[in-house]
Amino acid sequence: MPLRVLCKVDLLSDSPNITTEALLSPERIESAVISLAREIKVRCGDHDFAFVGIFTRGVTLAKRVAKRLAEEGINCPVGTLDISLYRDDFDNEGTDLPRLESSDISFPIDGTRVILFDEVIFTGRTIRAALDGLMDYGRPSKIELAVLIDRGHREIPIQPDYVGEVVPSEMNQYVKVRFVEDDDKEGVFLVTK
């Protein structure tokens, strides 16, 4: 059972109509990272592979899993990908002014087995954009997907290969992952408006 905490958080405003539940504790996140690392080791351990994280927290997740694997003597490079320019909902007429990040894939990806990382998979559209972005860097031999949280509600046929936790959610809710590296706090939260 998720622990229900009503608290002021940075996630959204502290309007009375918004509730925030803590879904995963820092310990649960750590064990999910360990299980992702274990699964990737079992399935890819004999091959060369590379990680590519989607900004911002996909990068953090990829680095954490890579660190686990490095402790077991398996080293793989970690690249970063900003998919803002590939989104299917880029709003050139609205108010959204995204700040772009520099993608950094400094290893050749042609013929490489690439595992993409994102913190949450929801509709699948972000991953669709990431696949387009990644393939503009080259032609990997295989692309797989690892996520910390699968919250369901796919809108396109994309499924993750490695999942830390499955979290049921409603369409009108938000699943927010917070990592200390990016947010000065750690946890997975379910926000209901």
């Binding site: 900003d82 320019l85 590939y86 880029f90 050139n92 002014l97 700040r99 772009l100 990040e101 520099s102 993608s103 387009d132 972005g133 503009d136 860097y137 080259g138």
Partner: peptide, 24 residues
């Protein structure tokens, strides 16, 4: 700052073999 900051990732696209993005 916003425009100059975003120009940096755009410039990095020029290092790729595919220099084009589908944004517009």
């Amino acid at each position: 700052e916003y425009v100059l900051g975003n120009a940096v990732p755009f410039k990095q696209l020029f290092q790729r073999s595919v220099k084009k993005v589908p944004t517009l």
